[in-house]
Structures are given as structure tokens and as C-alpha cells.
Amino acid sequence: MGLSMATAAHWVERWECQQQRYAIDRQERFTVIADVVEHMTAGHPAPLIADLGCGPGALAALLADRLPKAEVLAVDADPLLMGLGRAHYGSPIRYVETVIGEPGWLKALALRRPLDAAVSTTALHYLGERTLHRVYRQLAALLRPGGVLVNGDHLCQDAPAIAEIAGVVGRRRAERQRAFAHEDWNSWWSAATADQELAELVAERRNRRLPSSKENELTLSEHVALLREAGFAHVGPVWQFGNSHVLVAVR
């Protein structure tokens, strides 16, 4: 059974709503990331951009829309989410199925030139510290001089008291935006895997080795230190709300 565009649109929309429970000001975060990429690729006629841990590809689609001459790669290990994205967002994006950080993942990207930008949102915190450090080094090597890595993620402050306050601020913001009225992660997956039109993608997903869902719990300053050790010249946050940050690292 083929996947219809209507079904893909339905599940992608539900995914985006569900994700609002877990990413404060998700759309604003995406917009900030796109602003950074647009600024850092100005003057490059056809920038090459990779979205790491893309899910269905909403951020990749935003970048493709903002920079219509760019080549945008959407990279993820989940065939169900990527199948929904391919059917919904279509040809402006090249989807690449691979497990970030595992042997061979860079080869799967099939890059013919240096990256101008790499972006990620609520994905890299699932990598263990050693794997993340290796991925940061690999990305530093893949990016052109002046290229940029932009990571939107949950990054706590080092001081526990400040991290706790930031968490409260974030939750209050989410409550005001009624983010917790949306379905949660488990509800989305239970419903999606029961949809017969998604049966082939569900079966394919069950046959894949997906990344661990255990978080590394690195703080903001620890991410900054790893990025500098990896070879990035300039590193720092450009946007924050609660413990949600957009962290920028310039090659």
C-alpha cells in the first residue's frame, strides 16, 4: 500500500504538534537557526546544508524554503519519520538514512564538497559524550572555513540552582502557550504504528537498529568545551529560553 500525501501531511502535522511539548518555542527556535544559516551562507550561491537528526524534516524544509538555491540534506535513522517527510515535503530535500556517529555514517552523506552549515535540533543530546566529541570533530572537518554548526537543544547551565530556575521559566512559558495540551511522544507513536497505511514503514522501522534514547546530560559549557576541542574557533549561544538554547559554533 502506497503512502498518500494526505496521510503523510496528517502524521507530520501531528508530529509537529507533539514536539511542541518538548521544545520551548519550537518554531521560533527553527526561525533563529534559519536566520543564523542564512547570515553565515550569505554570498555563497548554492550552500550545502545538513540537518542532523531531522525526523520528518520540518527544519530542513524551512531551510530549503528560506534558501531555495541551497542543497539540503535531511539525515536521520528512522525510516518511518523519513518516509513521512519524503511524502510530505518532497524534492527540495535529499533524505539520507544513517545512524549519526556510527562507522560509515559520513560515507552515507555522499558529500562532493565541504558543508557550509550543519544544523540539528533536539537530537545530539542522544549521543554519548565520546560519540558526540567524535561527531563534533568530524563536522569540523567537513565544514568549510567559516562554516557553521547550529544546534538547538536542551542544554542546562552548570549551576544546579540556575538550571532549576531556567527549567521553571521554560515550563511556565510552555504552559502559557498550552504546549502540554498536545499529545505526547508515546501517544503519537502508538497511534502512528496502528495506522495500516503506515504498515510498511512500521515494519521497516522494526528491522532497523535505531539509536539509543538515553541522553548524555552534558551542560552548555561542556558542549562549548567539546566544540572548541573539536576545532571550532568561535562558540556560544545566540538564543535561549529556559534551558532551550541555540548554540552556534563557527569553523
Score class of each variant (00 low, 15 high):
181 A>N: 14
38 E>M: 11
224 V>P: 02
182 H>N: 13
198 L>A: 04
25 D>W: 11
40 M>D: 07
129 E>D: 12
182 H>R: 11
229 E>D: 13
206 R>W: 07
215 E>I: 14
39 H>L: 14
55 G>L: 13
130 R>H: 11
131 T>E: 05
53 G>N: 09
230 A>I: 04
85 G>S: 00
95 Y>K: 04
89 Y>D: 03
183 E>Y: 02
35 D>H: 11
57 G>K: 08
87 A>W: 10
43 G>A: 05
155 L>Q: 05
167 G>A: 03
12 V>L: 09
106 L>V: 14
126 Y>M: 10
17 C>P: 00
140 A>Y: 06
21 R>H: 11
133 H>Q: 13
33 I>R: 01
57 G>S: 09
116 D>K: 01
184 D>A: 06
78 D>T: 07
163 A>Y: 01
43 G>N: 07
215 E>N: 09
246 V>E: 06
145 P>L: 00
36 V>E: 06
32 V>Q: 05
41 T>C: 12
137 R>Y: 01
23 A>S: 11
165 I>H: 09
237 P>C: 11
78 D>E: 15
25 D>Y: 05
232 F>A: 10
171 R>N: 06
169 V>H: 10
52 L>S: 07
124 L>Q: 00
235 V>L: 10
235 V>Y: 12
166 A>V: 04
251 R>L: 12
20 Q>S: 10
206 R>A: 15
121 T>N: 08
105 W>P: 03
164 E>C: 13
182 H>K: 00
245 H>R: 15
61 A>S: 14
148 V>E: 02
243 N>W: 04
233 A>M: 09
130 R>N: 14
52 L>H: 03
206 R>T: 01
94 R>Y: 00
171 R>M: 13
70 A>T: 03
118 A>N: 02
67 L>S: 05
225 A>L: 11
11 W>A: 07
38 E>T: 15
20 Q>V: 09
158 D>W: 07
202 V>F: 01
105 W>F: 01
95 Y>F: 13
22 Y>S: 12
178 R>P: 04
204 E>M: 15
128 G>C: 07
236 G>N: 02
155 L>R: 00
171 R>F: 08
13 E>H: 14
197 E>A: 15
151 N>P: 12
247 L>T: 01
140 A>H: 15
147 G>Q: 00
62 L>E: 07
141 A>S: 13
220 L>H: 06
24 I>V: 15
153 D>M: 03
131 T>Q: 15
115 L>N: 02
101 G>I: 03
179 A>F: 07
150 V>Q: 04
231 G>N: 08
101 G>L: 02
199 A>K: 14
51 D>W: 07
